[in-house]
Amino acid sequence: MSSPPATGVPILRLGDVLVTGLLNELDDEAALRFTSELMERIATEGARGVLIDISRLEIIDSFVARTLMELTTTARLLGARVIVAGMRPPVAITLAELGLQLTGVETALNAEQGMAALGWHQSPAPPGEVRHDRRR
């Protein structure tokens, strides 16, 4: 379906949503490779939504912030909505003080709420049924 991951960051697919996460140990080059890999997956798999879990990220500097903003814009051009979920409070405070607002990037408190915003609801119904609803 796709070429082997170039960065070691797993990108999972749930219906038409791609789920992935960022780690601290990503250097600049790996971050850029990750972005292109994610865009490739959006295009080839026709994803409508992308959830990026950043709850493991201990810092976001202007480079990572810009990566997230560019990634969001590019994904939107490819027809997918990006939600960045789980930013830690110290990271949010630092970003706000840096003056970076992540313009255009949608955020959610955690992965669960991010998925809900992308149309996935926690439901007592068996998973198959939810899946059925989502299928186009």
Partner: peptide
């Protein structure tokens, strides 16, 4: 929070 501030500044 101060740790995060200083590490971020160092990164910049």
């Amino acid at each position: 929070v101060d740790q995060t501030r200083v590490v971020t500044a160092a990164s910049e």
